[in-house]
Amino acid sequence: MVLFLQQMINGLSVGSIYALIALGYTMVYGIIRLINFAHGEIMMVGAYIAFILAVNTSLPFILILLISMVLSAVIGVLVERVAYKPLRKAPRISVLITAIGVSFFLQNLALVIFKADPKIMPELIEKKPIAIGPLQVGTVTVTTLALSIVFMIALDLFVKRTKPGKAMRAVSEDKDAAVLMGIHVNKTISLTFAIGSALGALGGVLYGITYTQVFPTLGVLPGLKAFIAAVLGGIGLIPGAVLGGFVIGMIETITKAYLSSQWSDAIVFGLLIIVLIVKPTGILGKNEKEKV
């Protein structure tokens, strides 16, 4: 039982990382209906930035984290401006391919700069077990969970309470109507990429710390899983991404611990398939029928 609870906490911690990354996917999809395949790479970039700072400076962890998030946000916005914005009126599949191109590009850029071999992430969070009753939980796990929750609450408040947040929701509801209401759509899209990328970078840094490594293809697998999480919860929906992230994290951890680590991916993808067949719009999504 104790072991199971411990696994649950691990699952929550992994899930919170997925949730952070899934938020970026879902926000971008919500606003421009693009599966941003480059998002996993933004996460990887965030992890590398933290790695460089940690190796070369003695800045405190929280500052390293913030710098990484800000720089990744800038890169995310830059990618949108250069590679996606010119294609806003093009067929959607062209933008998808461009996103894939950006993903390759960032991966190979990292490969050229840092080479393929994994770099050891310095111990940014002091590792020691914390006892919660009979449970032994690592500091990394606790910090990951705490930081994720703090930023998710901040995002929720931002989207619901602030003017730019409301603009974001308006643009994702109806772009044309938003323009008529005087909302600056391009700015809002950039803002969405900035926030999504910053959260992705946060996920990346935490992922790097949890698995103590950084490497050029770091973003691929968690990116894919986070994307599944976003779909599972209902793509385009912020609470859906969080829910999906936790669900995927839990299932993955539990299947790895109790069933088989080889098959855990198949179970995750199988779950995705079942959810899509039963309810394509995801757990929290609304079903919509095409109007005739």
Binding site: A83, P86, L87, A90, P91, S94, V95, I97, T98, I100, G101, V102, F104, F105, Q107, N108, L109, L111, V112
Partner: peptide, 22 residues
């Protein structure tokens, strides 16, 4: 050598930007 795939992906992006319809 090392820049190979970097150039490849760069060209892919450029091609899509200039010929989105293929």
């Amino acid at each position: 050598s090392d820049f190979r795939m970097l150039l490849y992906s760069f060209m892919l992006i450029v091609m899509m930007l200039f010929r989105p319809q293929g």
